[in-house]
Structures are given as C-alpha cells and as structure tokens.
Design a protein around this nucleic acid. Structure first.
Length: 101
DNA sequence: CGGGTGACTTCCC
DNA sequence: GGGGAAGCCACCC
C-alpha cells in the first residue's frame, strides 16, 4: 500500500540525529519529493509511532505546527534533547540538520 | 474522476 | 510581524 511515498519520508526523518531538526519542506526535498511539504505531515501522522523521531520535524522558520497537546509534547521532547528555543521557534541556526540532497 | 482536507510554503499588504 | 490568499499534493471519500 502507500509505502512508496511514506517509506521514503520516514527514511529521511530517521536520519535526523538527536539534537537536530529539519523542516517539512527540507524532508520532502531530501526524500526526493520537492514541493510536498504538506504530505510529509500525512506521512508522520500515518507513521508507526514509537520508532520515528517525528518531533524533529518543524515548520518553516523552526515553528511547531502540531496543534494543542501534540505541539506541547513535541516541544518538551526537543528540549529534552537539548534543542534550544527562542520564543516559539527552534534556533535553526544551531539545530537545523543539513541533509545531503 | 471530482471534491474536500490539512502537523506546509511563499508572497503580498 | 500578523493576516490573508494562492499554490501544492497524497489521501480518502
């Protein structure tokens, strides 16, 4: 089933190391599907929870876009990994993970 | 195959 | 820098 696209996205997300983050758009590009940032969110939502560092994927500018509790959990998880924030955004200048396109 | 739905982005005011 | 509009696209009726 829908493994083709999702599997690629998950593979990229799993490459993001602890303490680093990436944006939806960057993940999409690295996976070989430029312009599908929105679909990355689908892939994360439909991902098998527990074995994917979903919390390391953020919106452009380092913003957490996951609403309500999920967003809070995401922030806590990131902070637990040593990711620093400035107001509501992650300091991308320090934590953005550069992927080999 | 048409239409609605977003954990998106970018541009413009 | 907030707010709105438009572009994009996999997924599910």
């Amino acid at each position: 089933m829908r493994e083709g696209y999702y599997a690629q996205i998950w593979k990229v997300v799993r490459r993001i190391p602890t303490g680093k983050v990436a944006t939806y758009g960057a993940v999409a590009r690295a996976a070989g599907f430029p312009g599908t940032a929105r679909q990355v969110a689908w892939a994360l939502r439909g991902a098998p929870r527990g074995r994917l560092p979903w919390h390391r994927v953020l919106g452009a500018g380092g913003r957490i876009l996951l609403p309500t509790e999920g967003g809070l959990e995401q922030r806590l998880r990131l902070q637990a990994e040593g990711v620093s924030f400035q107001a509501d955004r992650v300091r991308m200048d320090r934590h953005q993970y550069k992927m080999n396109v």
